[in-house]
């Protein structure tokens, strides 16, 4: 099928199988040659920041925004992107001009191996869009579909909370690093 959608602000048109997974398409296929007038222009918009962790919707590493909604690229098919607007972590900000969340993740040491980070940042952006002043518990809820196996979440929550405070302009939540219920793991 001929697929047309917007990826991080760029109009993308390409030929694909309709049942190609969105994650594979975004990571591998979004490079194309365009005939602009008489010039053959090569566009490479491959979104390698969209990571595949589990491939079954349980880890959140492939989190993307589709028309502003937090979705998982491993559980979408190419045909479902038709006419939609997709934003990945690279679309939120760049190295030169990072999103406040990306800056906060770096400043708070919320990045270790980095594999979960693009998905985490997308999930956090979706959360703050809906709830600009979340409590710490609401941040944990909002990120509960994104697994990190390095940092233990405290610094990630700290980073999101710092940005939320900047947005809200005041203290919106409890003490950072409060020890209670910090681990999402087994219930007692």
């Amino acid at each position: 099928m001929r697929l047309s959608f917007i990826l991080n602000g760029h109009q993308v048109v390409l030929e694909t199988a309709p049942d190609r997974r969105a994650i594979d398409l975004l990571r591998e296929d979004v490079t194309h040659e365009d005939l602009l007038g008489f010039d053959l222009v090569c566009h490479d918009h491959r979104a390698l920041e969209v990571k595949e962790g589990c491939g079954t919707g349980e880890c959140g590493a492939c989190s993307i925004l589709v028309d502003g909604v937090h979705r998982l690229a491993c559980l979408m098919l190419a045909a479902q992107l038709e006419g939609r607007e997709v934003v990945t972590a690279a679309g939120l900000g760049t190295q030169a001009d990072p999103h406040p969340l990306q800056r906060a993740f770096a400043e708070h040491g919320a990045v270790q191996c980095g594999y979960c980070t693009p998905g985490m940042v997308v999930a956090a952006a979706a959360l703050l869009e809906q709830n600009p002043a979340p409590t710490r518990a609401e941040i944990r809820q909002g990120l509960s579909g994104n697994l990190c196996r390095c940092t233990g979440y405290v610094k990630i929550v700290d980073a999101v909370q710092a940005v939320a405070k900047d947005f809200a302009g005041e203290d919106s939540a409890e003490e950072p690093g409060a020890p209670c219920a910090e681990n999402e793991g087994e219930r007692p």
């Binding site: 919707g57 959140g60 989190s63 909604v69 937090h70 979705r71 998982l72 559980l75 979408m76 999930a123 979706a126 959360l127 809820q141 909002g142 509960s144 579909g145 994104n146």
Partner: peptide
């Protein structure tokens, strides 16, 4: 049920 992205989908 699930997680925020799962509930969105």
């Amino acid at each position: 049920l699930g997680s925020p992205p799962i509930r969105n989908m």
